[in-house]
Design a protein around this nucleic acid. Sequence first.
DNA 1: TGAGGGCATAAGCTGGTCTTATGAGTGGAG
DNA 2: CTCCACTCATAAGACCAGCTTATGCCCTCA
Lengths: 306, 306
Amino acid sequence: MSGAEERRGPGSLAHRVPDLGALELLLAVARTGSLGAAARERGVSQPAASSRIRSMERQLGVALVDRSPRGSRLTDAGALVTDWARRIVEAAEAFDAGAQALRDRRDSRLRVAASMTIAEYLLPGWLLALRAGRPDTAVSLLAGNSTAVAERLLADEADLGFVEGLTVPAGLDSAVIAQDHLIVVTAPGHPWARRRGPLAAAELATTPLILRERGSGTRQVLDAALGGLARPLIELSSTTAVKASAVSGAGPAVLSELAVREELGLRRLVRIPVRDMSLGRDLRAVWRTGHRPTGPARELLSLTRG
Amino acid sequence: MSGAEERRGPGSLAHRVPDLGALELLLAVARTGSLGAAARERGVSQPAASSRIRSMERQLGVALVDRSPRGSRLTDAGALVTDWARRIVEAAEAFDAGAQALRDRRDSRLRVAASMTIAEYLLPGWLLALRAGRPDTAVSLLAGNSTAVAERLLADEADLGFVEGLTVPAGLDSAVIAQDHLIVVTAPGHPWARRRGPLAAAELATTPLILRERGSGTRQVLDAALGGLARPLIELSSTTAVKASAVSGAGPAVLSELAVREELGLRRLVRIPVRDMSLGRDLRAVWRTGHRPTGPARELLSLTRG
DNA sequence: TGAGGGCATAAGCTGGTCTTATGAGTGGAG
DNA sequence: CTCCACTCATAAGACCAGCTTATGCCCTCA
C-alpha cells in the first residue's frame, strides 16, 4: 500500500468539502434562481437555506451566489463549483440506488444477481436509469461470482443475472450486453507510458505484472490470451488493491477497462496499447432457460443495451 | 423516527447517503482491516470510529464489516458499498482541488486561466494529478471565455491558459492537448435512439435541436459544420440546461462529448452517430508568445497530454 | 496465566443546523 | 403614492449527531 498522503492539519476532505445537503441545496439554488425557492424545494426554511449557503461560501472562501432583491444568481465561480458539486451528487445518487437494492433483499419486484465487476461499475447506473423510468420498482441486488449468480437464478431466487465469465453456466440463456476489455496500465511516470509504438504481446508475457490472483476472472482471461505465461510481480486479491498498486508506480497492471475508466480520466493511470492480442470478454445478461425476462426485468435488460 | 421524508421524490439524498467523513472512514477500514487502525489513521478515537461505522450500517440497513477480536473485514456487501463510496470520495477530491484553486486567487505559484468547459470537466483531474506529484504547489484558477483567458495571459496575470476555440488569440503560442467532439445525443426513449444506421448531416440540419445560444463556442462549431443551418428547438444559456432538457426527452441536443460522458455512461443519454460531418475542435494550452511554460506550468502542461 | 490488541458501552460536552419571529430593501399594481 | 408581494438577512433558542475519555469484555499468543 502506497498510501503516503495523510497530510495532517485541521482535517481532511470532509472538512473542506461541503456536505451533501449543502451541495444539493446549491444545485437547487442554481436551478430555481432563488434561495427561498430552493429552500422550499428542499423542504427547509428560507433562513436555513440562506445560512447554509453562506457558511458554504465561508468554508470555500469564494462567493457563490449574487443576491439581489429579486433573486439570486450564481457567480462565475459559483457556476463552476456547482458543476463540480453535481459530480459528487451524481456519485451519491448511484451510491443510494445501489445501497437501496442491497438493503431490500427479499420481497422486491425485481431481484437481480450480478458478478462483482458488473455490480461495482455498471449496475448503479442502470438502477438509476430504471428508477427514472419506473420510480416504484423495488430492486434487490445480490453480488457474487458466476456460479453464485447461476444458483440464484436456478433456485428462482433472482429474476435476472449478469455475469462476465468466458462461458455461460448451464441451464441459463444469455444475451451479450457489452464487451469488456482487459487493458494494460501503468502510472504516468512509468517508462512504458512514454513508448511510441504499441507493446508486443511477447514483451507483456516476459514482464512481471501486478495481477489479480490465479482463478480470478481477470486472470483467467489474461492467462488464456498469453498462453498461461503471465509473470506476476505481485498478486493481489482485489481489483482495488491492484489499481492502488499500479497508481503508486509499482509496475504495469492488467485490469478491466471498466475498473480503470476513472483513473484514466484523471491521468492517474495511462493505458498502454498492446499488439497481437485480444483481451476482450463478453458481459452477459442471463436468465433461466425458458424464462425470458418480463416486466421490470425486461425493462432493466433493455437499459443495458445501447 | 422520521417517516415524512421517505415519500418525497428528490427530497433526501443527504439522509440516505452517509456523509463524507463516514465514507472516508469506511475506506480506511477497508484499507487497514481494523476499526481502531482506521480511527488512528483518520485522527479520531476508536469509539468514534466504531460508532460511526455502526450508525452507517444502521442507516444503510446492511452489515458492512465483520468484527472479530483480531480485526474487521468487509462483508461482501461492504466491499460493494466501499467501491461505490470510493466514487463519491473521488468526486469530492476533485471538488476540493478545484475549490482550492478557486480560492487562492493571488500569490500562487501557478496561475491558470481556463475556458469554462475545460475548467468544468478536465481541470480538477489535472489538479489532482499535479497535487499528487507536487503537493506543495499552490494553484489559482480563473475561468472565463477565450478572450478573458488571453487577457490574463497578456497582462501576466496568468502563467498558463486553456482554450477550446477554433482559433488561437493573437499574441499567444499554443499546443493542442486534446480533441473535443460535439456529438448528437437524445434521451434513450427518443426514436433516433432506435435508428439502425447513422444520421445524415442533412437530416440533422432540418431537425429542431436543443442548442446553446448563438455565439457560444459550441454553437459556432455546429453552425460552421452545418453551414449556418442549425434549427433551434430551444436555445439555452448553459451546457447544464441543455443536458437537463435533453435528458428529460425534449428532443435531440448537440453537446461536447466531455459534457455528456457521465450521462452516456449512465444511459441517461444516448449518442446518435452522424455521417458526413466532422464536429471536432481542438483543446489547446496557450501561453504568451516567447514565454514557454517552466516549472509548475510545465509540469501541468505535461500532465494534460497522454 | 498474564499481556495486548480489538471492539463495545456509558456519560458528558460541543457545534452545527434547524426552527420561528422579525427587519429591511425592491418593484409592480391599484 | 401606497400597499403588497417578493427577495434576503438577522436573532434567539431547541435539538441532535458526533466527539471525547473511561471502562469492560473477548480473544489470541507467549
